[in-house]
């Protein structure tokens, strides 16, 4: 064990974190007063280690209490604070200010393709509608909860990646097909279908594949890879979509 014994400073405040000034250019929209959105600039002092979420909190708590955005767990597990940061979909709680070119104004916008309710908050209902379409639940018969059901680690690993989804909509709202065609299921719904199609315990694979074979299903995907890049959980979204496409062809629903 090689802990480098650091200087004995038991109090956190003893260590100074360098601070610097940044400008956040935030797209604001208040349906009560505005007919369309506009951008407002905020000069914020941040620590070198701060995340975009910390900067947004500083604005909300100290400068403009009306700024609205969603956040919950604040460390990338709940998936509430997906937003466009300098044009890319990211979670504000997992994006360090220093990593998004803070020398220039940092643009913060709501995720695209879903109706904006206020400021950075969008209506998630269309997103959840697509999710519900693909039957996002295990379909199985004859298994009572009186004992456990054997599943091999290998069978579990087959769909492990797509169970990491946090339904933040970063992938779906980064997809150009979704922007242009509100009917497309979008990557998140397909990822969640994948999670069941490749679960050895599930009995509704054919049904799900049929749903995704629909005209608004997987074939709309043009393999742009925006979704994979946007996923804050590192899920290989495009790969999952490709696996579903292949399953439709080979299993032939």
């Amino acid at each position: 064990m090689s802990v480098d014994a650091p200087s004995k400073k038991p109090i956190a405040e003893a260590v100074e974190v360098p601070t610097f000034q940044i400008t956040l250019r935030i797209e604001r929209y208040n349906p009560e007063f505005d007919t369309e959105s506009h951008y407002e600039d905020y000069e914020v002092t941040v620590h070198g280690t701060d995340r975009v979420l910390d900067a947004l909190h500083t604005i909300k708590w100290d400068m403009d209490g009306s700024l609205s955005f969603r956040r919950s767990c604040a460390h990338g597990v709940c998936g509430s604070d997906a937003m466009r940061i300098n044009g890319k979909n990211r979670l504000a709680c997992k994006t360090l200010v220093k990593d998004v070119n803070p020398d220039k104004p940092i643009t913060i916008e709501p995720i695209k393709g879903l109706p904006v309710e206020k400021d950075l908050i969008v209506d998630m209902e269309p997103f959840f509608d697509s999710y519900r379409e693909i039957m996002p639940f295990l379909v199985t018969t004859g298994h009572e909860p009186t004992h456990e059901r054997i599943q091999s680690q290998a069978d579990k690993d087959r769909f492990d990646d797509t169970t990491k989804c946090i339904l933040c909509a970063a992938c779906t709202s980064s997809c150009p097909v979704f922007w242009n065609d509100g009917q497309y299921f979008g990557p998140a719904a397909i990822v969640n279908a994948h999670r069941f199609i490749f679960d050895s315990r599930d009995e509704a694979g054919d049904q799900r594949l049929q749903i995704l074979n629909d005209k608004e299903g997987v074939w709309r995907c043009r393999t742009v890879f925006n979704c994979t890049e946007a996923c804050p959980r590192g899920i290989e979204v495009t790969k999952a979509i490709a696996e579903v496409k292949r399953a439709i062809i080979t299993r032939r629903v």
């Binding site: 199985t140 909860p145 004992h147 456990e148 059901r149 054997i150 769909f159 679960d199």
Partner: peptide, 21 residues
């Protein structure tokens, strides 16, 4: 029993070599 029930709802768990939870 509640864990096994959760499994019938579709929950995923890490597995032992024998395939148990």
């Amino acid at each position: 029993r509640r864990v096994w029930e959760l499994e019938t709802y579709g929950a995923l768990f890490d597995r032992t070599p024998e395939g148990k939870i």
